[in-house]
Design a protein around this nucleic acid. Structure first.
Lengths: 208, 208
DNA sequence: AAAATGACAAAAAACATAAAATGTCATTTG
DNA sequence: CAAATGACATTTTATGTTTTTTGTCATTTT
């Protein structure tokens, strides 16, 4: 006869897939021991399984680490989606809130979790495409806000939304690019506001 | 009686000071062998002297390398001085030419001389104050141009020249900050122009 | 038969040791 | 006597060796 426990698991909402639990465990070990001292055996042990089994879910240690970073990137960009697409608010306000949220998220992560930030940064260097996708996600969000702003007459008629979004993100890179966010002392709140203000004035006034 | 050569040297315009010739030699070795494989003995040998003698002119290898980097930074900022202070041209034009020159200088150096760029970049991380001074030099140049532009009515009356200069440089960091200039693929000409255009529009329009 | 194991070869990291570079200084040279 | 040397102690880097970690897979478990 099957045990009670096995029945519970079979009928419950899929429990938590093992691959996710592995990601959680990896993140925990990373946090505790740092990138350098993290190995697959420890991750497996923290789940009470043999390390060989990890490889049934991730093809390599690097793939596992990448997956951690990808999930981490989504934790940054997903909440921004809501701000970008809130058509009820004026584009200017959304843009400001969006950028604020992005900057806060990055800074908080650097401060609270330097170890995980290292993992992320390591992957930034190694895995171009993962980062490209993330940047494209952000770009799309900004572009939508700029387009809305142009349509609503908040920003200059002559603006190319895609190009302006690109310019906006680039100008703001001092405040969100990993290489610069990590630097010490970090850019100040005031600096960010000043740059944002200048960019906003530019969006309003449009091309010379 | 003194030799002819010693007479020539005593009356000629100071010849080239040994400390400068050491810098030249160091730069040459750096270029040839790269930062990692550069050692003081080789530098001395290339000047036909013992390495001990180098230490009569520089207190340490690091100090010598720093001096190379400082000279290198001046090679970047000195020519910009002329552009920044050419009161005959409109501020807008000067700002554009200045930024263009800065960007070109940086990119050329990265491309033509990645080894020396590494030295520089190494020092950026290690020696905060040398870099701070360089940034302040650039900031001062931009500030002067912005102030002139405000005075001439090209830029908005409401602008704080110092704050705007800061914002300008920060917004442009994607195109001149070492950490980002080195990245591959490098930011494009077009991107730089787009950001510059937006900033310029902002300077003209002034604070919202 | 799907999930997990554990023994194993291959790859990578840590370690101890050898070699080279840095920096000092008493001595030499012009 | 200022400029330079070169022998030398100290620190840093390179090299070869051992140990750990990664990744595979035939076998076991549920």
């Amino acid at each position: 006869m099957g045990s009670g426990v096995s029945w519970v698991i079979r009928t419950m909402p899929a429990a938590v897939p093992l691959s996710q639990r592995i990601l959680d465990a990896a993140e925990a070990v990373l946090r505790r021991h740092g990138l350098e001292k993290t190995n697959v055996v420890d991750i497996a042990r923290s789940l009470g399984m043999s390390h060989g089994n990890i490889y049934r879910h991730f093809p390599s240690k690097q793939a596992l680490l990448d997956a951690v970073a990808v999930r981490w990137l989504h934790a940054v960009s997903d909440p921004l989606e809501g701000i970008a697409d809130d058509r009820a608010r004026p584009a200017t306000e959304r843009l400001r809130a969006w950028f604020d949220a992005l900057r806060r998220a990055k800074r908080r992560k650097v401060r609270d979790d330097p170890e995980l930030f290292q993992v992320y940064h390591g992957i930034v260097v190694a895995m171009r495409d993962v980062v490209d996708e993330h940047v494209n996600t952000l770009l799309g969000q900004v572009e939508r806000m700029v387009a809305d702003g142009v349509a609503a007459g908040e920003f200059s008629r002559g603006l190319d939304a895609a190009a302006s979004a690109r310019a906006f993100l680039q100008a703001m890179s001092a405040f969100h690019h990993p290489a610069l966010v990590m630097q010490d002392p970090p850019a100040t709140e005031e600096d960010a506001r000043a740059v944002f203000g200048l960019m906003l004035a530019g969006l309003r006034a449009g091309p010379a």
